[in-house]
Design a binder for these strands. Sequence first.
DNA 1: GCTAATTTCGGAAACGTTTCCGAAAAATAA
DNA 2: TTATTTTTCGGAAACGTTTCCGAAATTAGC
Lengths: 338, 338
Amino acid sequence: MKHITIKDVAKELNLAVSTISRAFNDKYDIKPETRELILKTAEEMGYRPNPIARKLIQQRSFNVGIVVPEFVNSFFPEVLLGAQEVLHEKGYQVLIMQSNESEETELKNVETLVDNMVDGLLVSLTSENNNNSFYEKLLKRNMPIVFFNRVAENLNTSKVVFDDYKWAFFATEHLIVQGYTDIAHIAGPKNLLLSKERSRGFNDAHRKYKLTPGHIISCGFSMREGEELAQQMVEEDTVPRAIFAASDQSAIGFMKTLKNNGYKIPEDVAIVGFSESKLAEHVCPSLTSVKQPTYEIGKAAAELLVEQINNKGIFVPQSIVLNGKLNIRESSVQITNG
Amino acid sequence: MKHITIKDVAKELNLAVSTISRAFNDKYDIKPETRELILKTAEEMGYRPNPIARKLIQQRSFNVGIVVPEFVNSFFPEVLLGAQEVLHEKGYQVLIMQSNESEETELKNVETLVDNMVDGLLVSLTSENNNNSFYEKLLKRNMPIVFFNRVAENLNTSKVVFDDYKWAFFATEHLIVQGYTDIAHIAGPKNLLLSKERSRGFNDAHRKYKLTPGHIISCGFSMREGEELAQQMVEEDTVPRAIFAASDQSAIGFMKTLKNNGYKIPEDVAIVGFSESKLAEHVCPSLTSVKQPTYEIGKAAAELLVEQINNKGIFVPQSIVLNGKLNIRESSVQITNG
DNA sequence: GCTAATTTCGGAAACGTTTCCGAAAAATAA
DNA sequence: TTATTTTTCGGAAACGTTTCCGAAATTAGC
């Protein structure tokens, strides 16, 4: 690929490169007519300023990087949509990388993005995450970073999270109110803050009703892991009367295996999930789930980031906590009650 | 963000920058000991060669750009996973952009990527696509591009596609064989080649059994559009006995609206989808669908691309056609037959 | 020990921009 | 008109690399 450069335009018009540059950068020490002329012939020649060279000289790129742990489920893509909208609006291009739930590739992704001089970073941690010294270093060097959804507790920067505690509480309460007392919690990966928060909500809901909380079983977010857990419980005959799962995926996997083993949902066991995946509404029976404001998470995170970028790293870290909604569906409604 | 540069390392060791550069580029005109020394102190100082400067001088980036029309459904993310695997293996970093099914942002995305000096492009067109002169120009300038899944007929470059014709044929045949004769086809967006191929398969399957093909109704890929279509058919009382939809999303939307209007699936109308979304297996009733080899599509496309990159644009365009599988489920099995 | 061949390194140009400084040109003031 | 201010533009340095060319240092050949 041969790129047309500013020099080509300068030669064509018999002007200095600095003049061409001025025409493109809207500086006011250029005569309007020459500016028009330059812009016109540049357009004709197919010239576009090379952002690589621009980055090098300006030390800023108007690119921001986003790192997500995965994107085969619709959750993160939806967040990305929100982030992308505000970032495009403010003139940033968005570079997306995904870590495949591996901390190692997560770090590589961040390094690539930093090396490519992104102006800021939006990141959601992998479930493997347990060492944040890398992020600490970046933050010390004034790299604007905001974490979203899967955040690290001890990092001193802006974050936008969902109110996991509250909605785990409500989801559990929904089961309790319907008369269930034997409720187990399929928790998320241990090192994630959101797993802890959801477990805490689960426990506190029990406390409110003076019940002793049921088992909390740590589990991954995937459907497969939900299936395996269910299989194990079926074999050990320890299937509880109700389940509150930390993800829709594990909830659905769990439900599927239960159905295959002759259990009826919700008659035999009631299930509620978390995160409102696309599946929840369409699964049989449809799955009660907590809906997170995905799009808004992305928007909020992006807005905090541009603020950080504009303030060149001097800022007060903010934490935004967003609200959700419990969508009650078939999988958790007590039918055989009276 | 202050970056540590090659000059800093040179100063620290009292060497010329060119020497430092040699140490990092494995050239053989450097003494092994000094090389070791340089690498060690560079590591200590936290120096990493700036890829921006590198791109500028080398005119290549070891980045490839991928642009997809959307990624809230799992199809494209899965393709991306495959592409990413082979590209990482070959030393490329992957920059992902999504076009939101808008041709305008698709073009902007491609421009951004080109401006950022990606070495090659993997693209899947938006459903709006109807003008490929931009891609033609790029190809003339020797930009390596391979299209996948949603390709343009008239562009002279490598493509990897699914055998849409064949599997649309099989899917339709599956319905015919079970005794259905009144089959409608919910087709995809008109300007997409894959829509035409799927319609052609639909027609030819009818021909094989000497049946006159049913209605072909053009429709988007989304669930909402499937719902709207169904609603309209219900009101006009033109609901056929069987449906072959060009996407799972539209199939599921269609099915949902039908169910809400008292139709029974598959007793009243049989449905088969296309693309094997995550939903197909979990929906009620579960949806018969054609499974595409998403991961393999990504891998094949990526391999063709690196080949093009290595051959610097001098290559013979290849078209790879991949095979699939029909997953037969509840939504299409004729029960009330005897 | 001397020349010749080889290895190892430094200097400088280049990539495509932006930006600073100063000079030329134009506009204004006297 | 001349002097002064303002506008408009050109030249050159800078960003952080790589790469070419040549010079110094080392090794080999005799």
